[in-house]
Nucleic acid binder design. Structure first.
Lengths: 193, 193
DNA sequence: ACCTGAACACCGTTCAAGT
DNA sequence: ACCTGAACACCGTTCAAGT
Protein backbone atom coordinates (compact mmCIF):
# COMPACT_ATOMS: atom_id res chain seq x y z
CA UNK A 1 0.00 0.00 0.00
CA UNK A 2 2.87 2.37 0.76
CA UNK A 3 4.39 1.58 -2.62
CA UNK A 4 1.07 2.21 -4.38
CA UNK A 5 0.46 5.46 -2.51
CA UNK A 6 3.90 6.70 -3.41
CA UNK A 7 4.20 5.66 -7.03
CA UNK A 8 0.85 4.38 -8.25
CA UNK A 9 -0.18 0.81 -8.79
CA UNK A 10 2.60 0.18 -11.31
CA UNK A 11 5.13 0.81 -8.57
CA UNK A 12 3.88 -2.34 -6.87
CA UNK A 13 6.19 -4.91 -8.41
CA UNK A 14 7.48 -8.05 -6.78
CA UNK A 15 10.99 -6.73 -7.13
CA UNK A 16 10.29 -3.32 -5.62
CA UNK A 17 8.27 -4.83 -2.81
CA UNK A 18 11.09 -7.22 -2.04
CA UNK A 19 13.52 -4.35 -1.98
CA UNK A 20 11.28 -2.40 0.39
CA UNK A 21 11.18 -5.39 2.69
CA UNK A 22 14.92 -5.93 2.50
CA UNK A 23 14.59 -9.21 0.69
CA UNK A 24 14.91 -10.64 -2.81
CA UNK A 25 11.73 -10.64 -4.90
CA UNK A 26 11.69 -14.41 -5.07
CA UNK A 27 11.36 -14.66 -1.31
CA UNK A 28 7.83 -13.27 -1.57
CA UNK A 29 6.65 -16.43 -3.26
CA UNK A 30 6.91 -18.20 0.03
CA UNK A 31 4.16 -15.93 1.41
CA UNK A 32 1.99 -15.25 -1.60
CA UNK A 33 1.05 -17.49 -4.48
CA UNK A 34 1.29 -14.96 -7.28
CA UNK A 35 1.22 -11.28 -7.88
CA UNK A 36 -2.53 -11.73 -8.33
CA UNK A 37 -2.74 -13.08 -4.82
CA UNK A 38 -0.82 -10.09 -3.55
CA UNK A 39 -3.09 -7.61 -5.33
CA UNK A 40 -6.17 -9.40 -3.99
CA UNK A 41 -4.75 -8.81 -0.56
CA UNK A 42 -4.11 -5.17 -1.31
CA UNK A 43 -7.68 -4.70 -2.54
CA UNK A 44 -8.92 -6.27 0.67
CA UNK A 45 -6.80 -4.00 2.83
CA UNK A 46 -8.13 -0.79 1.26
CA UNK A 47 -11.73 -1.85 1.74
CA UNK A 48 -11.02 -2.54 5.39
CA UNK A 49 -10.21 1.13 5.86
CA UNK A 50 -13.86 1.98 5.43
CA UNK A 51 -15.40 2.33 8.85
CA UNK A 52 -18.78 0.89 9.78
CA UNK A 53 -21.62 3.33 10.50
CA UNK A 54 -21.96 4.69 14.00
CA UNK A 55 -25.14 4.92 16.03
CA UNK A 56 -28.43 3.80 14.60
CA UNK A 57 -29.50 6.25 11.92
CA UNK A 58 -32.27 5.65 9.39
CA UNK A 59 -31.37 3.62 6.33
CA UNK A 60 -30.81 6.60 4.13
CA UNK A 61 -28.46 8.42 6.47
CA UNK A 62 -26.60 5.21 7.19
CA UNK A 63 -26.11 4.38 3.53
CA UNK A 64 -25.19 7.91 2.59
CA UNK A 65 -22.59 8.04 5.34
CA UNK A 66 -21.11 4.72 4.35
CA UNK A 67 -20.83 5.66 0.72
CA UNK A 68 -19.34 9.06 1.44
CA UNK A 69 -16.88 7.47 3.83
CA UNK A 70 -15.88 4.94 1.21
CA UNK A 71 -15.34 7.70 -1.28
CA UNK A 72 -13.03 9.55 1.11
CA UNK A 73 -10.84 6.47 1.26
CA UNK A 74 -10.64 6.26 -2.51
CA UNK A 75 -9.64 9.89 -2.74
CA UNK A 76 -6.78 9.08 -0.39
CA UNK A 77 -5.78 6.06 -2.48
CA UNK A 78 -6.31 7.06 -6.09
CA UNK A 79 -5.04 3.72 -7.37
CA UNK A 80 -7.74 1.80 -5.49
CA UNK A 81 -10.76 2.24 -7.77
CA UNK A 82 -8.86 0.89 -10.74
CA UNK A 83 -7.67 -2.04 -8.69
CA UNK A 84 -11.18 -2.86 -7.50
CA UNK A 85 -12.64 -2.59 -10.98
CA UNK A 86 -9.99 -4.90 -12.33
CA UNK A 87 -10.23 -7.53 -9.62
CA UNK A 88 -13.91 -7.46 -8.76
CA UNK A 89 -15.26 -7.55 -5.28
CA UNK A 90 -15.35 -11.14 -4.21
CA UNK A 91 -12.95 -10.82 -1.29
CA UNK A 92 -13.98 -11.01 2.35
CA UNK A 93 -13.75 -7.26 2.93
CA UNK A 94 -16.09 -6.61 0.02
CA UNK A 95 -18.50 -9.21 1.33
CA UNK A 96 -18.45 -7.52 4.72
CA UNK A 97 -19.48 -4.26 3.12
CA UNK A 98 -22.25 -5.83 1.08
CA UNK A 99 -23.50 -7.61 4.18
CA UNK A 100 -23.65 -4.29 6.04
CA UNK A 101 -25.53 -2.57 3.22
CA UNK A 102 -28.02 -5.43 2.97
CA UNK A 103 -28.56 -5.41 6.72
CA UNK A 104 -29.42 -1.73 6.49
CA UNK A 105 -31.80 -2.23 3.57
CA UNK A 106 -33.58 -5.26 5.00
CA UNK A 107 -33.78 -3.54 8.36
CA UNK A 108 -35.61 -0.67 6.64
CA UNK A 109 -38.15 -3.01 5.13
CA UNK A 110 -36.78 -3.27 1.61
CA UNK A 111 -37.94 -6.37 -0.20
CA UNK A 112 -35.29 -8.86 -1.27
CA UNK A 113 -36.07 -7.86 -4.79
CA UNK A 114 -35.63 -4.14 -4.35
CA UNK A 115 -32.58 -4.57 -2.13
CA UNK A 116 -31.05 -6.58 -4.91
CA UNK A 117 -31.65 -3.86 -7.46
CA UNK A 118 -30.38 -1.28 -5.01
CA UNK A 119 -27.16 -3.19 -4.51
CA UNK A 120 -26.56 -3.24 -8.23
CA UNK A 121 -27.33 0.38 -8.85
CA UNK A 122 -25.30 1.49 -5.84
CA UNK A 123 -22.47 -0.99 -6.30
CA UNK A 124 -19.81 1.33 -7.61
CA UNK A 125 -20.76 3.90 -5.00
CA UNK A 126 -20.75 1.45 -2.13
CA UNK A 127 -17.11 0.89 -2.90
CA UNK A 128 -16.44 4.57 -2.98
CA UNK A 129 -16.21 5.61 -6.56
CA UNK A 130 -18.59 6.34 -9.35
CA UNK A 131 -16.11 6.45 -12.18
CA UNK A 132 -16.50 10.08 -12.85
CA UNK A 133 -15.33 9.69 -16.35
CA UNK A 134 -15.47 13.02 -17.91
CA UNK A 135 -13.03 15.59 -16.76
CA UNK A 136 -14.50 18.93 -15.93
CA UNK A 137 -12.38 20.97 -13.75
CA UNK A 138 -8.75 20.80 -14.83
CA UNK A 139 -7.62 19.70 -11.38
CA UNK A 140 -3.91 19.59 -11.71
CA UNK A 141 -3.86 18.36 -15.28
CA UNK A 142 -2.48 20.57 -17.98
CA UNK A 143 -5.26 22.83 -19.29
CA UNK A 144 -5.10 21.18 -22.69
CA UNK A 145 -6.34 22.64 -25.92
CA UNK A 146 -9.91 23.87 -25.59
CA UNK A 147 -12.06 21.82 -27.96
CA UNK A 148 -12.97 23.83 -31.07
CA UNK A 149 -16.23 25.67 -30.40
CA UNK A 150 -17.59 25.14 -33.88
CA UNK A 151 -17.43 21.37 -33.65
CA UNK A 152 -18.64 21.23 -30.08
CA UNK A 153 -21.03 24.14 -29.58
CA UNK A 154 -22.87 22.56 -26.64
CA UNK A 155 -19.70 21.51 -24.89
CA UNK A 156 -18.56 25.08 -25.36
CA UNK A 157 -21.69 26.43 -23.68
CA UNK A 158 -21.17 24.21 -20.69
CA UNK A 159 -17.47 24.85 -20.40
CA UNK A 160 -18.08 28.57 -20.50
CA UNK A 161 -20.70 28.31 -17.76
CA UNK A 162 -18.38 26.15 -15.69
CA UNK A 163 -15.48 28.58 -15.87
CA UNK A 164 -17.72 31.56 -15.17
CA UNK A 165 -17.30 32.50 -11.54
CA UNK A 166 -20.48 31.79 -9.61
CA UNK A 167 -22.15 30.12 -12.57
CA UNK A 168 -21.18 26.51 -12.20
CA UNK A 169 -18.54 27.63 -9.76
CA UNK A 170 -19.57 24.88 -7.41
CA UNK A 171 -18.58 22.31 -9.98
CA UNK A 172 -16.78 20.05 -7.64
CA UNK A 173 -16.33 16.32 -7.80
CA UNK A 174 -17.66 15.86 -4.29
CA UNK A 175 -20.80 17.82 -5.06
CA UNK A 176 -21.41 15.85 -8.23
CA UNK A 177 -20.84 12.59 -6.43
CA UNK A 178 -23.37 13.53 -3.77
CA UNK A 179 -25.84 14.70 -6.40
CA UNK A 180 -25.75 11.35 -8.13
CA UNK A 181 -25.99 9.48 -4.87
CA UNK A 182 -29.02 11.46 -3.72
CA UNK A 183 -30.71 10.97 -7.06
CA UNK A 184 -30.43 7.22 -6.59
CA UNK A 185 -31.45 7.29 -2.95
CA UNK A 186 -34.50 9.40 -3.87
CA UNK A 187 -35.46 6.83 -6.45
CA UNK A 188 -35.06 3.94 -4.05
CA UNK A 189 -37.08 5.72 -1.40
CA UNK A 190 -39.91 6.20 -3.84
CA UNK A 191 -39.84 2.58 -4.95
CA UNK A 192 -39.84 1.40 -1.38
CA UNK A 193 -43.01 3.33 -0.65
CA UNK B 1 -8.36 -4.04 -31.32
CA UNK B 2 -8.10 -7.55 -32.76
CA UNK B 3 -5.30 -8.31 -30.33
CA UNK B 4 -7.34 -7.00 -27.40
CA UNK B 5 -10.45 -8.90 -28.45
CA UNK B 6 -8.48 -12.10 -28.73
CA UNK B 7 -6.29 -11.95 -25.65
CA UNK B 8 -7.38 -9.06 -23.47
CA UNK B 9 -5.69 -5.71 -23.08
CA UNK B 10 -2.44 -7.27 -21.89
CA UNK B 11 -2.09 -8.95 -25.25
CA UNK B 12 -1.66 -5.51 -26.77
CA UNK B 13 2.10 -5.13 -26.58
CA UNK B 14 4.31 -3.28 -29.00
CA UNK B 15 6.09 -6.50 -29.80
CA UNK B 16 2.94 -8.53 -30.45
CA UNK B 17 1.40 -5.74 -32.49
CA UNK B 18 4.53 -5.51 -34.58
CA UNK B 19 4.44 -9.23 -35.15
CA UNK B 20 0.79 -9.07 -36.21
CA UNK B 21 1.71 -6.37 -38.71
CA UNK B 22 4.71 -8.28 -39.97
CA UNK B 23 7.17 -5.77 -38.65
CA UNK B 24 9.56 -5.29 -35.77
CA UNK B 25 8.15 -3.61 -32.66
CA UNK B 26 10.49 -0.68 -33.02
CA UNK B 27 9.01 0.21 -36.39
CA UNK B 28 5.79 1.26 -34.64
CA UNK B 29 7.54 4.21 -33.07
CA UNK B 30 7.58 5.86 -36.45
CA UNK B 31 3.74 5.97 -36.37
CA UNK B 32 2.96 6.38 -32.71
CA UNK B 33 4.75 8.33 -30.02
CA UNK B 34 4.41 5.84 -27.17
CA UNK B 35 2.34 2.95 -26.11
CA UNK B 36 0.17 5.54 -24.37
CA UNK B 37 -0.45 7.18 -27.69
CA UNK B 38 -1.42 3.83 -29.15
CA UNK B 39 -3.86 3.08 -26.34
CA UNK B 40 -5.41 6.53 -26.67
CA UNK B 41 -6.06 5.65 -30.28
CA UNK B 42 -7.56 2.32 -29.31
CA UNK B 43 -9.89 4.00 -26.80
CA UNK B 44 -10.99 6.41 -29.49
CA UNK B 45 -11.70 3.62 -31.95
CA UNK B 46 -14.00 1.74 -29.58
CA UNK B 47 -16.04 4.83 -28.84
CA UNK B 48 -16.49 5.42 -32.55
CA UNK B 49 -18.35 2.12 -32.79
CA UNK B 50 -21.25 3.66 -30.91
CA UNK B 51 -23.81 4.77 -33.45
CA UNK B 52 -25.63 8.09 -33.22
CA UNK B 53 -29.36 8.03 -32.49
CA UNK B 54 -31.77 7.63 -35.41
CA UNK B 55 -34.85 9.69 -36.06
CA UNK B 56 -35.92 12.39 -33.64
CA UNK B 57 -37.18 10.78 -30.46
CA UNK B 58 -37.82 12.59 -27.21
CA UNK B 59 -34.80 13.21 -24.98
CA UNK B 60 -35.42 10.24 -22.78
CA UNK B 61 -35.77 7.71 -25.55
CA UNK B 62 -32.77 9.17 -27.34
CA UNK B 63 -30.58 9.04 -24.28
CA UNK B 64 -31.72 5.60 -23.28
CA UNK B 65 -31.02 4.25 -26.76
CA UNK B 66 -27.59 5.82 -26.85
CA UNK B 67 -26.61 4.43 -23.50
CA UNK B 68 -27.91 0.95 -24.25
CA UNK B 69 -26.13 1.00 -27.58
CA UNK B 70 -22.89 2.02 -25.90
CA UNK B 71 -23.28 -0.79 -23.44
CA UNK B 72 -23.69 -3.34 -26.22
CA UNK B 73 -20.33 -2.25 -27.60
CA UNK B 74 -18.66 -2.71 -24.23
CA UNK B 75 -20.09 -6.19 -23.88
CA UNK B 76 -18.48 -6.99 -27.21
CA UNK B 77 -15.15 -5.54 -26.07
CA UNK B 78 -14.78 -6.46 -22.41
CA UNK B 79 -11.38 -4.81 -22.17
CA UNK B 80 -12.80 -1.42 -23.17
CA UNK B 81 -14.31 -0.18 -19.88
CA UNK B 82 -11.04 -0.70 -18.06
CA UNK B 83 -9.19 1.12 -20.79
CA UNK B 84 -11.59 4.06 -20.69
CA UNK B 85 -11.47 4.30 -16.91
CA UNK B 86 -7.71 4.31 -16.97
CA UNK B 87 -7.27 6.85 -19.74
CA UNK B 88 -10.19 9.18 -19.14
CA UNK B 89 -12.39 10.54 -21.85
CA UNK B 90 -10.65 13.53 -23.31
CA UNK B 91 -10.26 12.19 -26.84
CA UNK B 92 -12.25 13.44 -29.81
CA UNK B 93 -14.58 10.44 -29.92
CA UNK B 94 -15.52 10.98 -26.28
CA UNK B 95 -16.13 14.67 -26.94
CA UNK B 96 -18.39 13.77 -29.84
CA UNK B 97 -20.47 11.64 -27.53
CA UNK B 98 -20.69 14.30 -24.86
CA UNK B 99 -21.64 16.86 -27.47
CA UNK B 100 -24.47 14.61 -28.67
CA UNK B 101 -25.78 14.05 -25.15
CA UNK B 102 -25.67 17.77 -24.38
CA UNK B 103 -27.46 18.59 -27.63
CA UNK B 104 -30.24 16.22 -26.59
CA UNK B 105 -30.48 17.66 -23.10
CA UNK B 106 -30.40 21.32 -24.14
CA UNK B 107 -32.87 20.55 -26.92
CA UNK B 108 -35.24 19.19 -24.29
CA UNK B 109 -35.02 22.37 -22.27
CA UNK B 110 -32.59 21.26 -19.58
CA UNK B 111 -30.84 24.14 -17.89
CA UNK B 112 -27.07 24.33 -18.24
CA UNK B 113 -26.92 23.56 -14.58
CA UNK B 114 -29.04 20.44 -14.64
CA UNK B 115 -27.48 19.22 -17.88
CA UNK B 116 -24.14 19.47 -16.18
CA UNK B 117 -25.28 17.39 -13.23
CA UNK B 118 -26.88 14.91 -15.61
CA UNK B 119 -23.66 14.52 -17.53
CA UNK B 120 -21.81 13.68 -14.35
CA UNK B 121 -24.33 11.24 -13.00
CA UNK B 122 -24.70 9.54 -16.36
CA UNK B 123 -21.05 9.69 -17.33
CA UNK B 124 -20.12 6.07 -16.81
CA UNK B 125 -23.35 4.98 -18.49
CA UNK B 126 -22.91 7.27 -21.46
CA UNK B 127 -19.75 5.39 -22.20
CA UNK B 128 -21.49 2.09 -21.88
CA UNK B 129 -20.67 0.65 -18.52
CA UNK B 130 -21.72 1.21 -14.98
CA UNK B 131 -18.99 -0.74 -13.28
CA UNK B 132 -21.22 -3.45 -12.05
CA UNK B 133 -18.85 -4.35 -9.34
CA UNK B 134 -20.39 -7.06 -7.39
CA UNK B 135 -20.69 -10.42 -9.00
CA UNK B 136 -24.06 -11.98 -8.77
CA UNK B 137 -24.60 -14.60 -11.31
CA UNK B 138 -21.56 -16.82 -11.64
CA UNK B 139 -21.31 -16.17 -15.38
CA UNK B 140 -18.51 -18.43 -16.42
CA UNK B 141 -16.43 -17.95 -13.31
CA UNK B 142 -15.82 -20.85 -11.03
CA UNK B 143 -18.69 -21.10 -8.55
CA UNK B 144 -16.32 -20.41 -5.69
CA UNK B 145 -16.90 -21.26 -2.07
CA UNK B 146 -20.28 -19.98 -0.95
CA UNK B 147 -19.67 -17.38 1.76
CA UNK B 148 -20.37 -18.82 5.21
CA UNK B 149 -24.02 -18.16 6.02
CA UNK B 150 -23.37 -17.39 9.66
CA UNK B 151 -21.03 -14.55 8.90
CA UNK B 152 -23.11 -13.19 6.05
CA UNK B 153 -26.75 -13.93 6.85
CA UNK B 154 -28.16 -11.18 4.63
CA UNK B 155 -25.96 -12.07 1.69
CA UNK B 156 -27.18 -15.60 2.19
CA UNK B 157 -30.81 -14.52 1.99
CA UNK B 158 -30.20 -12.70 -1.24
CA UNK B 159 -28.13 -15.42 -2.81
CA UNK B 160 -30.80 -17.96 -1.97
CA UNK B 161 -33.48 -15.78 -3.55
CA UNK B 162 -31.33 -15.26 -6.62
CA UNK B 163 -30.73 -18.95 -7.18
CA UNK B 164 -34.39 -19.81 -6.58
CA UNK B 165 -36.03 -20.32 -9.93
CA UNK B 166 -38.53 -17.55 -10.62
CA UNK B 167 -37.54 -15.60 -7.53
CA UNK B 168 -34.78 -13.34 -8.73
CA UNK B 169 -34.53 -15.52 -11.80
CA UNK B 170 -34.42 -12.44 -13.93
CA UNK B 171 -31.21 -11.39 -12.29
CA UNK B 172 -29.45 -10.38 -15.42
CA UNK B 173 -26.80 -7.75 -15.92
CA UNK B 174 -28.76 -6.12 -18.71
CA UNK B 175 -31.85 -5.84 -16.57
CA UNK B 176 -29.88 -4.35 -13.69
CA UNK B 177 -28.18 -1.92 -15.99
CA UNK B 178 -31.50 -0.74 -17.37
CA UNK B 179 -32.96 -0.50 -13.86
CA UNK B 180 -30.21 1.83 -12.77
CA UNK B 181 -30.44 3.87 -15.93
CA UNK B 182 -34.20 4.33 -15.57
CA UNK B 183 -33.82 5.30 -11.95
CA UNK B 184 -31.51 8.11 -12.98
CA UNK B 185 -33.63 9.17 -15.93
CA UNK B 186 -36.69 9.26 -13.66
CA UNK B 187 -34.83 11.51 -11.28
CA UNK B 188 -33.70 13.85 -14.02
CA UNK B 189 -37.18 14.04 -15.47
CA UNK B 190 -38.55 15.07 -12.11
CA UNK B 191 -35.86 17.70 -11.59
CA UNK B 192 -36.49 19.09 -15.03
CA UNK B 193 -40.15 19.69 -14.25
C1' DA C 1 10.51 7.96 -45.22
C1' DC C 2 10.46 3.74 -43.14
C1' DC C 3 12.43 -0.29 -40.97
C1' DT C 4 16.04 -3.23 -38.36
C1' DG C 5 19.44 -4.96 -34.66
C1' DA C 6 21.45 -4.49 -30.67
C1' DA C 7 21.09 -2.81 -26.30
C1' DC C 8 19.15 -1.13 -21.71
C1' DA C 9 16.41 -1.30 -17.80
C1' DC C 10 12.73 -3.27 -16.35
C1' DC C 11 8.88 -7.17 -15.52
C1' DG C 12 6.76 -12.12 -13.26
C1' DT C 13 8.05 -16.61 -12.32
C1' DT C 14 10.74 -21.32 -12.09
C1' DC C 15 13.91 -24.09 -9.99
C1' DA C 16 17.74 -25.85 -7.72
C1' DA C 17 20.52 -24.64 -4.13
C1' DG C 18 21.76 -22.80 0.16
C1' DT C 19 21.12 -22.05 5.75
C1' DA D 1 10.99 -22.86 7.24
C1' DC D 2 12.76 -19.24 4.77
C1' DC D 3 15.78 -17.01 1.51
C1' DT D 4 19.14 -16.55 -2.63
C1' DG D 5 21.19 -16.80 -7.51
C1' DA D 6 20.80 -17.83 -11.87
C1' DA D 7 17.89 -18.29 -15.50
C1' DC D 8 13.79 -17.78 -18.74
C1' DA D 9 10.52 -15.44 -21.32
C1' DC D 10 8.63 -11.47 -21.54
C1' DC D 11 8.05 -5.92 -21.40
C1' DG D 12 8.73 -0.48 -23.36
C1' DT D 13 12.03 2.34 -25.34
C1' DT D 14 16.69 4.39 -27.21
C1' DC D 15 19.83 4.87 -30.70
C1' DA D 16 22.70 4.19 -34.46
C1' DA D 17 22.52 2.01 -38.62
C1' DG D 18 20.64 0.35 -42.77
C1' DT D 19 17.58 0.89 -47.55
Amino acid sequence: MDLADEGGIDAVSMRKLGQRLGVEAMALYRHVRDKDDLLDGLADIVLREIEPPEGDPDWRTALRGQVLGARAIMVRHPWAPGLLVERGTAGPAALDRIEAVLATLFGAGFSVDLAHHALHVLSSRIFGFSQDLFDDSPRGREPGPMPPADRYPNVEVMARAASHEGGLGYCDDDVEFAFGLDLILDGLERLRG
